[in-house]
């Protein structure tokens, strides 16, 4: 089966600024690709090209087998998109918003009305459905916007930073909805700055920086790229930090990091749980008092830092949305 989304060498320039510098992507049907990167990395521009809002300066892309430029009009009935800013009309009620979208998908009056009610119920908005959106909370608007993207039951869904500005509970609810859709066979491309979100939802993650995909793989593969597991130790006295570093240096496969304030040491290792046992044995022989010890996978934050040389959040200049 051909992939649901294919992008090859997408380039987009704004004057002298290169927003996209040759993006390649391929998303198999029924899977989730997470585009992960800081603000300005090119995530939104990529989504805008794939949803026919922008024309690429070079390269081409197909979604659901249709070219995003040549077949744009036909493609629009096969995709759903939910943007960073909830694209809903404040003065209309939730139901009216969804009905309008249904009509513009040319579903007809009756089907549009019926679909609006179904979606309101699915997104827990039945009670608010006949109130103007003006009075909705940020989370409710987001849910309504996502419902708008689903009106025509599109096989491919684009979500641009779907949980920006949501509180943790609303975010968890959103994740649940996305998981259900994917279980039902929908292909999803989502962008996020939240590493946790990519880790949780995406089958594969494309790390984007300065308009290029700099790494691609499952969360585990990306974590392996920065060197498998880490032993994390906490000692009771800062004098012992040096001893730990000296004793365990032979086990480390990359730089050992010490944090004098937290009295902790992080040692990247290759041997999994066995290396933790070995390490603790060495430390016991040296009479180091270990207060806490554990083996953990690298976080996506660490992945991001090692891939891009900067933290995921440092480029974040935008205020969170409303």
């Amino acid at each position: 089966m051909p992939p649901a989304i294919v992008a090859e060498g997408l380039v987009k320039k704004y004057g002298t600024v290169t927003a996209l510098d040759g993006i390649d992507l391929s998303v198999p049907e029924g899977t989730v690709l997470g585009l992960l990167g800081p603000n300005g990395a090119g995530k939104t521009t990529t989504v805008r090209i794939l949803t026919t809002l922008l024309r690429p300066d070079a390269g081409h892309a197909t979604v659901a087998g249709l070219d995003v430029v040549a077949d744009a009009q036909r493609l629009r009935s096969r995709i759903g998109a939910s943007g960073q800013y909830a694209a809903v009309d404040e003065h209309l009620t939730g139901a009216e918003n969804l009905e309008m979208v249904g009509r513009l998908y040319h579903l007809g009056t009756r089907r549009s009305r019926q679909r609006a009610r179904e979606l309101l119920e699915r997104f827990d908005l039945t009670d608010a459905g006949d109130r103007p959106v003006k009075g909705y909370s940020g989370g409710m608007r987001r849910r309504l916007d996502l419902a708008g993207a689903l009106v025509a039951d599109p096989p491919v869904l684009f979500l641009d930073e779907p949980s920006t500005g949501l509180d943790p509970r609303a975010r968890a609810g959103l994740w649940e909805v996305i998981s259900e859709l994917v279980a039902g066979g929908t292909t999803v491309l989502l962008t996020t700055q939240y590493l946790e979100e990519a880790d949780r939802l995406a089958d594969r993650i494309a790390v984007v920086d300065h308009g290029r995909v700099i790494a691609l793989g499952t969360a585990d593969q990306l974590k392996d790229q920065v060197g498998g597991d880490r032993i994390e130790l906490t000692v009771s006295d800062s004098a012992e930090l040096e001893t730990v570093r000296r004793v365990l240096a032979p086990l480390a496969v990359a730089d050992v990091q010490t944090d004098p304030t937290a009295l902790s040491v992080t040692i990247p290792v290759a041997g999994g749980a066995a290396s933790l046992t070995t390490a603790l044995g060495h430390l016991a022989a040296e009479r180091v008092t270990v207060r806490d010890a554990g083996l953990r996978r690298p976080t996506l934050d660490e992945v991001f830092l090692s891939l891009t040389g900067h933290q995921a959040a440092t480029d974040d200049t935008k205020e969170p949305v409303r």
């Binding site: 949803t51 026919t52 809002l53 009009q73 036909r74 629009r76 009935s77 995709i79 759903g80 998109a81 943007g83 960073q84 800013y85 909830a86 694209a87 809903v88 009309d89 404040e90 979208v101 513009l104 998908y105 040319h106 916007d145 708008g148």
Partner: peptide
């Protein structure tokens, strides 16, 4: 300013509408 046109433009509607 509200982004509603982005929604419209991803829909298969007549652009002149």
């Amino acid at each position: 300013q509200k982004g509603i046109f982005d929604r419209f433009r991803t829909l298969p509607m007549a652009p002149s509408a």
